[in-house]
């Protein structure tokens, strides 16, 4: 069978989600943001909730998330996305509201907002992209930068005596009674991406079921900021970040439901 005979509409097994806007993303080659954006678009499309979805974009590389997914969006000030989302969801309790935040946004300048939104159990999904660095401003240390990692503001590596320790936000929010589902995912392999998508869909479903805050951290790469190729960055992430930020569910309020194994 020739390739041209296979490429026919009836044989389509993977295509671009209709919710992904037809434009070229501004992200660097290999950036995890693109993968997670795609998963959000796919999940919202497959769950048929475009009309009730409101996304809150952060400040950081993903400030332009609203250019890529075809839903209503609000662009928040740096770190304030959980407060903005709170305002939206409190007055629109039947909408699906999610925030999309990086590690500088969520774990540093917006630490108060995320802790309190999760503690109130705001009925929303938080998507936390943790690549351990400030991407947009040029590779400075983030609160989640792991020890000894070189960044433009820790040129000799992060020294915990000087800079404190990498902050495990996901472990913190898992302690809060307002969160129902807290998980740490990644998106560097096909299996990881598929698993991450299931986690996002579960988070969305929890919000639709009004279970409080769901929190999905995605350990991500910033190959430009890390000064590596995308492939090297994935390897570095697996070897260096996963030991400190182990993947898996930290909390799942639906007791008795088996945690997905793949």
């Amino acid at each position: 069978m020739e390739t041209k005979d296979i490429i026919k509409p009836e044989n389509l097994v993977y295509g671009k989600s209709e919710l992904l806007i037809d434009t070229i993303m501004h992200y660097c080659p290999g950036c995890t943001h693109g993968v997670v954006h795609k998963l959000i678009a796919e999940a919202i499309g497959e769950m048929g909730i475009q009309e009730k979805t409101i996304g809150i974009a952060p400040v950081g590389c993903s400030v332009f998330a609203y250019n890529y997914i075809d839903i209503d969006w609000q662009e928040a000030a740096h770190g304030r996305a959980p407060a903005v989302a709170t305002g939206v969801v409190r007055l629109n309790p039947d909408k699906f509201v999610f925030t999309y935040q990086g590690d500088g946004d969520l774990a540093s300048i917006g630490a108060a907002e995320i802790i309190h939104a999760c503690n109130r159990g705001e009925n929303m999904l938080v998507i936390f992209i943790n690549n351990g660095i400030y991407g947009m401003t040029g590779g400075q240390m983030a609160p989640t930068t792991i020890e000894n990692m070189v960044t433009s503001t820790t040129p000799c590596g992060r020294d915990s005596e000087l800079n404190g320790y990498p902050l495990k936000m996901t472990d913190l929010v898992a302690q809060l009674p307002g969160t129902s589902y807290v998980t740490r995912q990644s998106a560097q392999t096909a299996a990881a991406v598929r698993k991450c998508k299931r986690a996002l869909k579960k988070g969305i479903q929890n919000v639709l079921d009004k279970k409080g805050t769901s929190f999905v951290e995605v350990i991500s790469t910033c190959n430009s900021g890390w000064k590596m190729t995308p492939v090297q960055a994935n390897k570095w992430m697996e070897e260096n970040m996963f030991p400190y930020y182990p993947l898996g569910d930290l909390k799942d309020s639906e007791k008795g439901e088996p945690v997905s194994k793949n």
């Binding site: 044989n11 389509l12 671009k16 993303m25 992200y27 598929r194």
Partner: peptide
């Protein structure tokens, strides 16, 4: 691009990991 098109099984892994969603997969 497909360097060895005859080996493709249409598993979609390439499209799944693509950050720019520029790969469409067909399988017959």
């Amino acid at each position: 691009f497909m360097k060895n098109p005859e080996s493709c099984t249409g598993c979609t892994n390439c499209a799944v990991v693509c950050p720019d969603t520029c790969i469409t997969v067909y399988r017959a």
